[in-house]
Computed example of a mutant assay.
Amino acid sequence: MTRPFRFGVVAPLRTDLPTWLDRVRRIADSGYSTLLVPDFPLTQPAPGPMLATVAARTDLRVGTWVYASPLRPPWMTAWEAHSLSELTGGRFEMGIGTGRPGIEDELREKGLPVAPPNERLAQIGETLRALRDLDGPDLHTPVAMAVLGPKARALAAEVADTVTFALGDQPRTEVARLAHDFRAVPEIELALAVPVIGDTVAPHMAPPDTDPAALRAVDALTVLPDDPAAAVEEIQRRREEIGFSYFVFGADFADRFAPVVAELAGR
């Protein structure tokens, strides 16, 4: 089964509120499916209020890209996710992962326990069990998991609706290998976050020292050409060869890639 394309935008609040809301409106008007926010505590408003605000002002789906499991007790993350599903009329998608590189330092700064990766993965499982209990039989909050290692991939295969890979400079062939088993599960959507367009790195989607030229040299999938026509061809290739149908860009590229979305969304 070939899934139709859809496109999301990671849009942290890095300006004044009216400017951010104007950008949100343009994203909605350009045909993107989903407005996403990162989980960076104290650098912007909390994800829940931001996403509820967007959902009240637009018809966009909204989501976290992604909750870091060690930052909150599992029950709290589940409660917030379930609440957002209810308040948005089912338009919320919960993205969750074990935490970005360097999360250990952030946890220490906030006085939180520094759990090893296997315990953080167990926290995700506990969160999802709590979420399904809260949702009950009449609501299903879609879950997107950011994974890389074999244990995380195995959990995602059991519980996730959408799977994305925590990628850096892995070459195309390695990413195709990671995606191979998921392509056999028609219920799972494969998502690809693309933090680099041309020579520009999206804030909060990749480390600021990311080298776009080095990514292109190894044929990494975390970069796309900045020419929309070339990007359309490459996006189609990535669905055909690997199975990616959901593509996520940074907000600074949303206007430039609006023609890409207009041509491919829903196809």
Results as ranks from 00 to 15, higher is better:
residue 4 P to T: 00
residue 7 F to S: 01
residue 8 G to A: 04
residue 10 V to G: 02
residue 11 A to H: 07
residue 13 L to I: 06
residue 18 P to H: 11
residue 22 D to Q: 12
residue 27 I to Y: 01
residue 32 Y to S: 00
residue 33 S to Y: 10
residue 34 T to I: 08
residue 34 T to W: 05
residue 35 L to C: 12
residue 36 L to F: 10
residue 38 P to E: 07
residue 39 D to A: 10
residue 42 L to N: 11
residue 44 Q to D: 02
residue 46 A to P: 00
residue 47 P to I: 04
residue 48 G to F: 00
residue 48 G to L: 09
residue 49 P to S: 08
residue 49 P to Q: 09
residue 52 A to G: 07
residue 57 R to H: 12
residue 59 D to G: 09
residue 60 L to D: 00
residue 62 V to L: 11
residue 63 G to F: 13
residue 67 Y to A: 13
residue 68 A to V: 08
residue 73 P to T: 14
residue 75 W to T: 12
residue 76 M to L: 12
residue 84 L to C: 08
residue 85 S to A: 10
residue 86 E to G: 02
residue 88 T to G: 11
residue 89 G to W: 13
residue 92 F to P: 07
residue 94 M to H: 12
residue 94 M to C: 09
residue 97 G to S: 03
residue 100 R to C: 09
residue 106 E to Y: 04
residue 110 K to D: 03
residue 113 P to M: 05
residue 115 A to M: 14
residue 119 E to N: 06
residue 127 T to H: 10
residue 128 L to V: 10
residue 129 R to F: 11
residue 129 R to S: 14
residue 130 A to C: 02
residue 137 P to R: 05
residue 139 L to P: 12
residue 140 H to N: 07
residue 144 A to I: 04
residue 149 G to R: 07
residue 154 A to R: 10
residue 157 A to G: 07
residue 158 E to G: 10
residue 164 T to H: 11
residue 165 F to M: 13
residue 167 L to G: 09
residue 172 R to W: 12
residue 174 E to W: 05
residue 175 V to L: 12
residue 176 A to W: 02
residue 176 A to Y: 09
residue 182 F to W: 09
residue 184 A to W: 15
residue 185 V to A: 02
residue 185 V to Y: 07
residue 188 I to L: 06
residue 190 L to Q: 05
residue 192 L to I: 01
residue 197 I to L: 04
residue 199 D to G: 05
residue 199 D to T: 05
residue 200 T to K: 01
residue 205 M to K: 02
residue 208 P to F: 13
residue 208 P to N: 01
residue 211 D to C: 08
residue 218 V to H: 08
residue 220 A to F: 08
residue 222 T to G: 15
residue 223 V to L: 10
residue 226 D to G: 06
residue 227 D to W: 05
residue 227 D to A: 08
residue 228 P to A: 15
residue 230 A to S: 04
residue 231 A to Y: 05
residue 232 V to F: 06
residue 233 E to K: 15
residue 235 I to W: 11
residue 239 R to T: 15
residue 239 R to S: 11
residue 245 S to Q: 09
residue 245 S to F: 15
residue 249 F to H: 02
residue 252 D to C: 14
residue 258 A to F: 03
residue 263 E to G: 12
residue 266 G to Q: 07
residue 267 R to K: 09
